[in-house]
Design a protein around this nucleic acid. Sequence first.
DNA 1: CTGAAAGCGCTTACAG
DNA 2: CTGAAAGCGCTTACAG
Lengths: 359, 359
Amino acid sequence: MVRSTLADVARGAGVSVASVSRVLNGLPASIATRDRVREVAHSLGYAPDLAARSLKIRRTEQISVVIDDLANPAYVSMMQGAEAVLRDAGYRIQFSSIGSDSDLGLGTALHAVSRGYADGLIICPLRMNSELVETLRHAPIPVVVIGGLPRGTAIDNVVTDSRLGVNLAMDHLHQLGRRRIAFIDGPLGTNPGDRRLEGYRSAVERLGLPDEDGLRRLTTEFSYAKGAAAAADLIVNSQFDALLAANDMMAIGAMHAIARAGLRVPHRVAVVGIDDSEMCLYSSPPLTSVSLGSRHRGKIAARLLLRRLARPDAPIKRVREAPRLVARDSTSARDFTGADDSTSARDSTGARAKRRGQT
Amino acid sequence: MVRSTLADVARGAGVSVASVSRVLNGLPASIATRDRVREVAHSLGYAPDLAARSLKIRRTEQISVVIDDLANPAYVSMMQGAEAVLRDAGYRIQFSSIGSDSDLGLGTALHAVSRGYADGLIICPLRMNSELVETLRHAPIPVVVIGGLPRGTAIDNVVTDSRLGVNLAMDHLHQLGRRRIAFIDGPLGTNPGDRRLEGYRSAVERLGLPDEDGLRRLTTEFSYAKGAAAAADLIVNSQFDALLAANDMMAIGAMHAIARAGLRVPHRVAVVGIDDSEMCLYSSPPLTSVSLGSRHRGKIAARLLLRRLARPDAPIKRVREAPRLVARDSTSARDFTGADDSTSARDSTGARAKRRGQT
DNA sequence: CTGAAAGCGCTTACAG
DNA sequence: CTGAAAGCGCTTACAG
């Protein structure tokens, strides 16, 4: 844990700091110098001070990736997508989770990130307000946003159309004969929360489905627990034959509540999530979900950033990622028996009794 | 994106750079100076260059947290635990995922992290070899390891006893009357992979359970997919009434394969995972798992690091986190019908036929 | 309260 | 090929 500097190595090797720097950066040097410097550097456990290096070369060779919620696999996929591209380009990646709860967190994280520790920033904010937009517009390093921006904002971004995504899900459920489609959303005021509610509303109108407050639930978080609680509440207070949740975590939470209530998926209630996370393949039943190409959006964001880094004055670019429905067993059509479902009613009773005994 | 410096602000405000620095760092200054500096700084969108600041103050006010696999919720919990503590202490947190696949990744990530961009490092490596130990021992900043270290290594660390954890799981299954307990492990050569296999072996011997190669599977990754594949293989080639997977992701993958094969959990096969991730609550059925206190280990690691930062010469400390079994429906005892299980055999057939039609 | 100056540890023209 | 020197943008004693 003792820090040695270039000067220490230079002294040890009997050369100038310039020579040490050259050797360590692979620039031409005599073999004798090179060997001696390397030997001394190694024996001293020398590691360059990156802050000093960055200060001099005006680059950190790092990119910051900032997301809201590390526990959400969709964000993790984005980060992994971005990482793959950036790593290939020779950048190190630093992740920061800003924590959707605290605007405070966002402020400090952005501050940290925007200067001195990164050459560029990829950010996928849950909430996009005008203050954040201004902060990003004036950032001292190139920024790419994953998510929507006010029309005309001069920031590269990659967007998806989650309104459309929700409509794909609604069409799918509608085609399966489902009519009373409940919707569990995340918090309003967030980008996904707002867009997905819009999507639900437009689909309900377009398809002529029942438009009832009782079929909608807003939660305070895109989490398993909130999805489960909202679904439990829906089950008690509402009648529905399908359920769309605004992300996969909530959908899986909801399936849990549905199973606890003794209702079968998809027979009694078809369930659809959003994000098409890997876990959709392994839930029981496997979860139909709307892919918003999280990993790909991460990759695209990284490419946009590399482009901006290479050409700072390139025209602003916005890339769209199309949503896509991925159907799985949670909306398998074959067993839907309509509203009058005596089979699942019987199942229901049995399962309820069983649960009661266990918990 | 235009970068202004302290000197720009000083010029604009008609004061020295020293005064600007003082104002911006909250040191005493006349009200007139303070207001003018702040105004100019704001209008210039000034943000301090953190590399320069770090170089001068010899601190970055950042901590690096390095994990192997961002997709694994256990690691995410650790990071979140560490983050909570470090944030309270005024540090910014930078996450890096080293990617278990490439030793290359580990090298560069460590290099990046070890000097200049962080004041300390928390690392939870999947593989702990002597080279890594040496690297960490000679790191220029304090290091805390989450995971085992060779006896006597002079690095603070927090460990859990996953051998014991596995034994708790085995005891639990044994008490439920299960005797043919299959085990799906991650790769050998990894810390958890090795320890958990040891645990399984010792439990099998201690409990007098059948010790057959056919009941064990090694995978190349602690993932959903590998867990599912290993379980599918076990189902075809082996007889078992319980299954322990070396982490929750593999356990959930395995439950998926078991469901596909038409076998019911826990009636026919009881399943246990390790890590007690949040998703265990929401899987279907909810998954019994061994908690290794991931979040808490993250917190403890952060506290150890803060202690080391405050007292560089404090004695080396190792903290143990005890494993704990959390029983849920995937090992519910009530429905176990023993090896001769005609009910689940019938289920099996029906489910198989159904799947075939769908995929 | 304020400014001039030194210096953190590097890199990089510039001479030689 | 090599060294002396300047300078990246800050902070901080040190004088005044």
